[in-house]
Design a binder for these strands. Sequence first.
DNA 1: AGCCGTAATGTAAGCGCTTGCATTTTGCAA
DNA 2: TTGCAAAATGCAAGCGCTTACATTACGGCT
Lengths: 364, 364
Amino acid sequence: MEKAPVTDPKSPRSAVSPTLGDVAERAGVSTATVSRCLNTPSLVTEKTRERVFAAVRALGYAPHFGARALAAKRTNTFGAIIPTMENAIFARGLQAFQEELEHHGITLLVASSSYSPELEEQQIRSLVARGADALLLIGHDRTPQSYALLETQRTPYVVAWVYDEHQPRLSIGFDNRKAMQALTDRVLDLGHRSLAMITAERGGNDRARHRYEGVLAAMSARGLDPQGLRVVETPYSISNGAEALGALMQSGPQPTAVLCGNDVLAAGALLGARRLGLDVPKDISITGFDDIEIAEIVTPALTTVHVPHRNMGKGAARLLVALRGGEDPGPSVELEATIKLRESLGPVPGGSPSRPAGPRYRGL
Amino acid sequence: MEKAPVTDPKSPRSAVSPTLGDVAERAGVSTATVSRCLNTPSLVTEKTRERVFAAVRALGYAPHFGARALAAKRTNTFGAIIPTMENAIFARGLQAFQEELEHHGITLLVASSSYSPELEEQQIRSLVARGADALLLIGHDRTPQSYALLETQRTPYVVAWVYDEHQPRLSIGFDNRKAMQALTDRVLDLGHRSLAMITAERGGNDRARHRYEGVLAAMSARGLDPQGLRVVETPYSISNGAEALGALMQSGPQPTAVLCGNDVLAAGALLGARRLGLDVPKDISITGFDDIEIAEIVTPALTTVHVPHRNMGKGAARLLVALRGGEDPGPSVELEATIKLRESLGPVPGGSPSRPAGPRYRGL
DNA sequence: AGCCGTAATGTAAGCGCTTGCATTTTGCAA
DNA sequence: TTGCAAAATGCAAGCGCTTACATTACGGCT
């Protein structure tokens, strides 16, 4: 009679990554015990625990996420879909979101939709399939299928970066329209009457749309004809902003102030102005929106709308955690966006302000 | 004897998200057929396929990723761990990486390590557990455990953003040392002799370290004492860059040129110089590294090292796809980084260049 | 010593999917 | 019609994990 072969014939594990069973075998316990060590260590004796962790280390074991999700029906993973990662617009808010989730032991998965509702739908599908327990979404504009999907999959979500009282969904953000209107008011206070706007594409982007509407509203409130607003719509990017400004100055009535839908376009506009030999704000005023880092470093520094990025991220995380826990998250949250006056906005060239920028706007 | 029904009728699925079984039942086929419809449609009759897809739509079915990964042992998901998402340093490369993966039907999962090897190890673990078929990593510096993990889990990976002939691992990138040395050479050509460097933290960051060494190498090659280089090390951020420049000018021998380890710090340094009332490049020269978007929009525009972001991303994707397919990816790839001369670098104040900036460096 | 409550561990039934193999259906030639 | 290969479909065994429930071990009482 021959003795058994050196390597255990029934589990030639060496070829694949180790499983719970391998760890259990090596530690001389059952798989249940190993699982408990990993998930609820308090239920296991100190001694066993040590043996198990030693085996885990020795084998370089990492639990299979899929198997785990399948068995436990929870992933402790949240997802976030933002329109773009190419610039810092969402970075700070996302960072805060992630930090808050970390406190709850939740991992964040981030996807970007490139401002495309179709791509976003796909990303939602992907994240939900991956077992995201909850989702952070930007703005209300998306395909009906996206919402249907969220519904049938019963995935909690929150809409951020917008507060729109007309929308029924749970959201946390600020009133883009109101904020832009306030900024435009400031511009008008300084005597500007010939305005232009460089906006991001408004289709499928309620933030952009509301900001545009805010400008119109401010003009109307002063008895100005909103038709007088020259508008260029262009995708997010610095070079596009520069080109847009060029287009604006090349033909048609010259604006004395250009309101940009976001800081990226505004930075581009600044660049465009410089290329044209225009002095900002002496020859032309330019404003942004978002108050991301570049707003401070460009020359001249951008007058813009400061968005409560961090509060939004943190608040969104809290809402979602509550939602997942089956708690009542409470109503949607409106945060304040404030105007940040810097150097790129000045009085209208050669004119005197129609009325002084009074204390009325202080603290906005 | 009763016959066993194909699908168990007793489970009222309505309360949870639909499964393959629900779709099968509704379409009147087996789960196997539904699975084939989703994965290998060619194996299924046109007619059945239609019925199945109708059921999928009606139910809002989305396959459970975990279950799928468990059964198929492939996820068609790659992971990337980058040090930071807070600025655009990796954005362009990552974008190209993703685009290339898309062509192969692969989804990208991105995580950020905040420049912490420990956090990175955790992220690797998480991504591997999630079933990432392959991983993109930045630089060679990481914990031994990270490499061990990759090994035992047999997860293919590629190291990007660096080319270091001394490292055995598959990588695609450029020689940070050589590039920085070339840039420093340019600076020295312009007569600068009193140099300073603002570098990112060099621990666990071989890119930063190599760039630093590049400066030293250039100095040594000219017979200058490397000890003469003043160094400030600070975490990535514009404000840190500004502060670092302030610290540099406040005490000690005043540098006439400040080499920054990256564009973010350089943008900060520019800001710091402006605050001090210094004119760049007349009073002081400042250079960056990476050539990200802000390099072009700051005033003055940054002289920097242009990094082949997109080629790196695309190339990395190709290497990984080959690797996963069991093919030979070939050797590591060295790409060229080129010097981008803009406005922030000028001749040493009040001095004449020790030698002219000759054609010797053209095209670098 | 015998009993019992509690803590620790084991057993085994799935979770939703893929896939090798078995079975049925189809299309076509004889 | 019949026969047969190929195409289409079904069956059922897992994939690696969690967890309800069953079992065993351990002390502290009487």
